[in-house]
C-alpha cells in the first residue's frame, strides 16, 4: 500500500492542496492500493519550498499540480 500524505497546512491549503486532496479522495479506483492522509504543515514551506506539498512514500513533491499528481500516480500504479 502506498501512502500519500497531502499537506493541509495553511500554505498548502491556500495554494491548491485542498484540490489535490479532493482529487485523490474522489478517485474510487485508488481504494485499497493507496492510502491518502491529510497531514499538518510538513514545514517544507518554511524551508522556502513551493506549496502545495505532497509526500508519496518517502518522497516529498513540491508545487504539485493535479496533472503531475495524476501522472505520478499512474506511474506508481504501473510500476
Amino acid at each position: 500500500m502506498i501512502q500519500i500524505k497531502v499537506c493541509c497546512g495553511l500554505n498548502c491549503a491556500a495554494h491548491g492542496g485542498q484540490e489535490l486532496l479532493a482529487l485523490l479522495e474522489e478517485s474510487g479506483d485508488l481504494t485499497g492500493r493507496v492510502e491518502v492522509a491529510p497531514v499538518p504543515c510538513l514545514h517544507c514551506c518554511q524551508e522556502g519550498e513551493q506549496s502545495p506539498v505532497v509526500q508519496i512514500g518517502d518522497e516529498i513533491h513540491t508545487r504539485v499540480s493535479s496533472e503531475q499528481l495524476q501522472e505520478t500516480l499512474e506511474q506508481l500504479m504501473k510500476g
Binding site: 484540490e19 479532493a22 482529487l23 485523490l24 474522489e26 478517485s27 474510487g28 479506483d29 485508488l30 493535479s66 499528481l69 495524476q70 500516480l73 499512474e74 500504479m77
Partner: peptide, 8 residues
C-alpha cells in the same frame, strides 16, 4: 487508472 475530473 484515471482520476476523475473535479466537479467544478
Amino acid at each position: 487508472m484515471a482520476l476523475p475530473q473535479l466537479d467544478i
